[in-house]
Deep mutational scan, measured.
Amino acid sequence: MAASAHGSVWGPLRLGIPGLCCRRPPLGLYARMRRLPGPEVSGRSVAAASGPGAWGTDHYCLELLRKRDYEGYLCSLLLPAESRSSVFALRAFNVELAQVKDSVSEKTIGLMRMQFWKKTVEDIYCDNPPHQPVAIELWKAVKRHNLTKRWLMKIVDEREKNLDDKAYRNIKELENYAENTQSSLLYLTLEILGIKDLHADHAASHIGKAQGIVTCLRATPYHGSRRKVFLPMDICMLHGVSQEDFLRRNQDKNVRDVIYDIASQAHLHLKHARSFHKTVPVKAFPAFLQTVSLEDFLKKIQRVDFDIFHPSLQQKNTLLPLYLYIQSWRKTY
C-alpha cells in the first residue's frame, strides 16, 4: 500500500487533545456564526451592495467568503475584532481572482478581468477605488493598515499566469505559485494584525505553500471532471502515471504514490512551519489557523491510503469550527 511504503514521513496525529474535556472553552465561534445575517447573495444585490440601503460592502465580502471560501471565513471569524473586516476584504479579493479561471470560457475574457483587478489595485493606492464592493472594502483595508501593494499585485499576476490550462511542470513550480498567492495572502494578513517579524514571515511562507499544494490536491477530482489535470508532471512521470490515469480515476498503487509524494511535500512544509513556532510572536498565530484544515485533509487522505478520489475527501468536517476554536484558544498553530 502507498501509505505503508512511505509511512515514515507522517508524524503522530495532533488533533487529539488529552485532558481537553476537563476545561470548557468559552463560547465564541458558534455564537458569532449565529449572529451573522444570512440572506442569499443575488446578482441584483451584488450590483447594489455598495449603494445606500443595501447590506453594505462589508456584508457582501463576508457573504462571498462564506459561500466560496468557507474555511477562510471560519478562520477570519476568530481574528481580533479590529482586524476582521480587513481580512474579510482581503480574502474576498482572493476569491474574486480565484473564480475568474473557472467562470470564463475564453482566456481573453479572463485576461480582461485580471486587467480590471490590476487597475483596481492601482486605483486603490491612488484613493480612487471603483464602485465595486470588494474594491471598496480592500481600499478601506489598505488605508487602515498601510498594506504593501507588492503582495496584492503578486496575487493578481500569479492568478493571471495561471489562466493557462497547463499542469505544473514540477513541484517547485506549484510551490512558486502557492508562494505568490497563498503566502502573499498571509503576509498581508500579518500586516493587518500589525506583525512585522521575520520568523512570522518564514512560517507564512511555508504554510502558504502547504495551502497551495493541498488546494491543488483537493481540486483534482473537480478538475478531472472537466478533463483537466494540474498535478506536477515530474512526480507523475517518476511513477509512470499519465494524465489519462487521473481522468479515468485510476486507483492503482502508482497513482496513489503520486498523491503521496505531493501530500508529503505539504506535510513537510507544515511540519517545518511549526518547528520554530517558539520564535514566532503569539500575536501572529491567528493568521495561521488554516493549519487546522490543512492537517485535517492530510490526515483524511492518509486514512484512505492516498486515494484522491475517495468520497470521504469531499465531505465537510462538521467539527472544523470546534477544532479551529480550540486551536485559537490554545494559542498555537
Rank of each mutant, 00 (worst) to 15 (best):
S45R: 06
V46R: 12
V46G: 04
A47S: 15
A48N: 15
S50Y: 13
S50M: 09
S50K: 07
G51H: 14
G51I: 07
G51W: 09
P52N: 12
G53R: 14
A54I: 13
G56Q: 15
T57A: 10
D58M: 12
D58E: 13
D58C: 07
H59D: 10
H59T: 10
Y60R: 06
C61Q: 04
C61Y: 06
C61W: 06
E63A: 14
L64N: 11
L64W: 10
L64F: 14
L64D: 04
L65T: 09
L65H: 02
R66M: 10
R68M: 14
D69V: 02
G72R: 04
Y73L: 14
Y73P: 01
L74G: 01
C75A: 12
C75D: 03
C75P: 04
S76F: 04
S76Q: 03
L77R: 02
L77F: 04
L79D: 02
P80L: 01
P80C: 06
A81V: 15
A81L: 13
E82F: 14
E82A: 12
S83H: 14
S83F: 14
S83M: 13
S85D: 11
V87D: 03
V87G: 10
F88K: 05
F88P: 02
L90Y: 00
L90P: 01
R91F: 05
R91S: 05
A92R: 03
A92V: 05
N94T: 04
N94P: 00
V95C: 15
V95G: 07
V95M: 06
E96G: 05
V100T: 14
V100K: 05
K101P: 14
D102Q: 10
D102W: 07
S103D: 15
V104R: 10
S105D: 15
S105C: 14
E106F: 08
E106H: 12
K107Q: 14
I109G: 13
G110A: 12
G110R: 07
M112G: 14
M112W: 13
M112F: 14
M114Y: 11
Q115Y: 06
Q115R: 10
W117H: 03
W117Y: 09
W117R: 02
K118N: 06
K118G: 05
K119P: 02
V121R: 04
V121Q: 01
D123E: 11
D123L: 10
I124H: 01
Y125N: 04
Y125S: 03
C126Q: 15
D127T: 06
N128C: 14
N128T: 15
N128E: 11
N128H: 14
N128R: 14
P130F: 03
L138G: 02
W139E: 03
W139Q: 06
K140A: 03
A141Y: 00
A141C: 15
A141I: 04
V142C: 11
K143Y: 06
K143Q: 13
K143W: 07
R144C: 07
R144G: 06
N146C: 11
L147K: 01
L147H: 02
T148D: 05
W151E: 05
W151P: 03
W151M: 06
M153K: 14
K154E: 06
K154Y: 05
I155K: 01
D157F: 09
E158S: 13
E158N: 10
R159A: 05
E160K: 14
E160Y: 14
K161A: 13
N162R: 08
N162D: 15
L163G: 05
D164T: 15
D164S: 15
D165V: 11
K166T: 12
K166E: 08
A167T: 12
Y168K: 01
N170Y: 08
I171C: 09
I171A: 04
I171S: 05
I171F: 11
I171Y: 09
K172W: 10
K172T: 15
E173N: 06
E173T: 07
E173P: 00
N176D: 12
A178K: 00
A178P: 01
E179Y: 04
E179K: 01
N180R: 10
T181V: 15
S183Y: 00
S183V: 06
S183K: 03
S184F: 08
L186E: 01
Y187S: 01
Y187I: 04
Y187C: 05
L188H: 01
L188T: 05
T189L: 15
T189D: 02
T189V: 13
L190W: 00
L190C: 03
L190Y: 00
I192V: 14
L193S: 03
G194S: 07
G194H: 05
I195W: 02
L198R: 04
A200S: 11
D201Y: 04
H202A: 06
H202Y: 05
H202R: 04
A203R: 02
A204N: 01
H206Y: 04
H206E: 05
A210Y: 00
A210M: 01
Q211W: 13
Q211T: 15
I213A: 01
T215N: 12
T215I: 07
C216L: 14
L217G: 01
R218S: 06
R218Y: 03
T220I: 13
P221G: 13
Y222N: 09
Y222F: 15
H223G: 05
G224M: 11
G224I: 15
R227D: 10
K228D: 09
K228I: 12
K228A: 15
V229Y: 04
V229N: 11
V229M: 10
F230H: 14
P232W: 02
M233H: 07
D234E: 12
D234W: 01
I235K: 08
I235W: 04
C236P: 00
M237Y: 12
M237E: 05
L238G: 11
G240T: 06
S242Q: 05
S242K: 04
S242T: 09
Q243P: 04
E244C: 03
E244Y: 04
D245G: 07
F246L: 12
F246A: 04
F246P: 02
R248G: 04
R248E: 04
R248T: 07
R249G: 13
R249I: 09
N250F: 11
N250K: 13
Q251G: 15
Q251P: 12
D252I: 11
K253E: 12
V255Y: 09
D257W: 06
Y260E: 06
Y260H: 07
D261S: 08
A263V: 07
Q265D: 06
Q265C: 10
Q265P: 02
H267E: 07
H267R: 08
L268R: 10
L268E: 08
L268A: 10
H269C: 02
H269D: 03
L270H: 00
L270M: 11
L270G: 00
L270Q: 00
K271Q: 09
H272W: 15
H272N: 15
A273N: 00
A273V: 03
R274H: 05
S275H: 08
S275D: 10
S275G: 14
F276C: 06
F276D: 05
K278Y: 08
K278E: 14
K278H: 09
K278W: 09
K278A: 13
T279V: 15
V280N: 00
A284L: 01
F285W: 15
F285C: 13
P286F: 07
A287D: 02
L289I: 12
L289N: 06
T291C: 09
S293I: 10
S293R: 04
L294C: 09
L294S: 08
L294A: 12
L294G: 02
D296H: 08
D296A: 09
F297D: 03
F297Y: 13
L298A: 01
L298K: 01
K299T: 12
K299C: 13
K299Q: 10
I301P: 00
I301R: 00
Q302A: 09
Q302E: 09
R303A: 12
D305K: 07
D305W: 00
F306W: 10
F306V: 00
F306E: 00
D307Y: 03
D307P: 00
D307A: 03
F309L: 06
H310Q: 04
H310Y: 04
P311R: 09
S312H: 09
L313Y: 00
Q314C: 10
Q315K: 09
Q315E: 12
N317D: 15
T318V: 13
L319A: 10
L319S: 10
L319C: 11
P321V: 05
L322E: 00
L324A: 08
Y325H: 07
Y325T: 12
Y325A: 11
I326E: 03
Q327N: 10
Q327T: 10
R330Y: 07
R330W: 08
